[in-house]
Design a protein around this nucleic acid. Structure first.
Length: 426
DNA sequence: GGGTGCCTAGGACATTATAC
DNA sequence: GTATAATGTCCTAGGCACCC
């Protein structure tokens, strides 16, 4: 039987502000309401490791939001802090490359308890989950990081501990979300010899797991899903501009405060908030757009400019690809050219697949995601995975793999599959 | 085959704001 | 007055698609 029929407990490290668990809740509700399955899907969040205290607060808030629309009450998982605290200080601070660190962790003690922020006590971390869905740090794997060192970089210890914990617990299915350039051979080395790895690119994507059977062709199922979705849905940047005038005013007011300008409550237009460099950049991009496409920039409802780069250095805009540029970690703003309004964090969350409007929420069986506070919404947008991709990947993993039968396990020992990652911004 | 443009889940560093 | 945090500006470099 596939994990979709049997799996219940989900864990995560570097939670992406609870994206995987949110995806699980939406997936469970959607599948059960569809009436397509002869059984009831029942998923449960067991534990998360989240280093960032602000993200831990977001986990609590998102969990409450899930319970506001779910048919049943989801129990708050154990929320622990730093995953590295699973091993002694000597093991988590070892020097050298990834494989050396993995060797050190391999011989280290793994603690069975860690401080839990949910229960305000030391709770067990020894109980095995059925599925782990983690968004491990990707900065060292990204093309945009010139000095990237991949898995030998500054997060090597985190990867080593993460893999070792799952190997010891024999977590059946381990899903890893990351950038397309992650060196999969090194991930496989971390999990060998017990796991098998499958990598998928879902615009965001790969996947994996343990002690289980491969039931259906992962890639064939994925292809069918992609075809089905792309035949029915095709969005443009304008579709993600979902923020309300109130949300735009909050963003403008915050910008005015930072730049010591008077906030104009009569308009959501952000032109007066731009500094000299940004206004010049808009004019330069306008001229470029007019020359290329022979039409006025303001006539294009899908045109978005990124204001953080100098024109002479790089044009980061939606014009060539008709898709939103990759969101950046610096403070540069995105400007919707037609309305001259800033892209709000709510718009970014919509682009990341979160249900921000009544329409999308109804389709997903939820209520609109509450994210009025620009700071909180920005925090979410900066840390979350693509929600729809996460749900599809989770469904693939749960449907295509299943627990091995007892008799077969005795005969062959151990089979496993491993990770997936997904991502690249849409 | 060579040139050009697009793209990247990012980072360094100087300046300015805020806390103590 | 000093330490620290936040903000703003500028930039890496290589793969890939496209065009000539």
């Amino acid at each position: 039987a596939s994990f979709l029929r049997t799996a219940v407990d989900i864990s995560s490290s570097c939670t992406g502000v609870y994206t995987a668990e949110t995806a699980a809740a939406i997936l469970e509700r959607t599948l059960n309401l569809s009436g397509l399955l002869p059984f009831t899907v029942h998923l449960r969040s067991l534990r998360c490791f989240e280093l960032d205290s602000r993200c831990r607060q977001a986990i609590v808030d998102n969990h409450r939001w899930i319970n506001s629309w779910s048919d049943r009450t989801w129990v708050m998982p154990h929320v622990h802090g730093d995953l590295l605290l699973q091993v002694p200080a000597k093991a988590r601070t070892s020097q050298g490359g990834l494989l050396h660190k993995a060797e050190v962790v391999k011989t280290a003690k793994v603690y069975k308890k860690q401080w839990c922020f949910t229960h305000q006590s030391y709770c067990s971390t020894a109980r095995r989950s059925d599925v782990d869905f983690s968004g491990m740090p990707c900065q060292e794997n990204s093309k945009a990081n010139v000095r990237r060192r991949f898995l030998d970089g500054r997060f090597a210890n985190v990867y080593a501990v993460w893999a070792e914990v799952h190997k010891r617990q024999c977590t059946p299915l381990v899903i890893l979300e990351n950038t397309p350039d992650i060196p999969l051979d090194q991930v496989i080395k971390l999990f060998e010899p017990d796991y098998r790895a499958y990598q998928i690119f879902l615009k965001p994507g790969d996947l994996g797991h343990v002690e289980c059977e491969y039931l259906y062709d992962l890639y064939a199922v994925l292809e069918k899903i992609k075809q089905k979705i792309s035949n029915n849905v095709r969005t443009t940047p304008g579709d993600y501009l979902v923020s309300t005038p109130a949300a735009k005013h909050l963003v403008n007011a915050e910008m005015a405060r930072k730049r010591k300008l008077q906030h104009d409550a009569d308009t959501t237009c952000a032109w007066y908030l731009l500094n000299e460099r940004e206004q010049l950049l808009v004019e330069q991009l306008d001229r470029d757009y007019l020359a290329r496409y022979q039409r006025l920039p303001a006539s294009d409802p899908d045109l978005v400019y990124f204001l953080g780069d100098r024109y002479e250095f790089s044009r980061t805009w939606s014009a060539p690809s008709n898709s939103l540029p990759t969101f950046r970690r610096n403070t540069g703003k995105f400007l919707h050219r037609q309305s001259l309004t800033f892209l709000c964090p709510q718009d970014k969350l919509a682009a990341l697949g979160w249900p921000m409007t009544l329409g999308t929420a109804n389709e997903m069986g939820t209520t609109p995601f509450p994210a009025l506070d620009p700071h909180r919404a920005d925090e979410m947008a900066g840390n979350s995975m693509h929600l729809t991709c996460a749900a599809v990947v989770l469904m693939l993993g749960l449907a295509c793999f299943g627990r091995q039968k007892q008799s077969a396990r005795r005969a062959s020992g151990f089979t496993c599959a491993a990770p997936l990652r997904c991502s690249e911004h849409p």
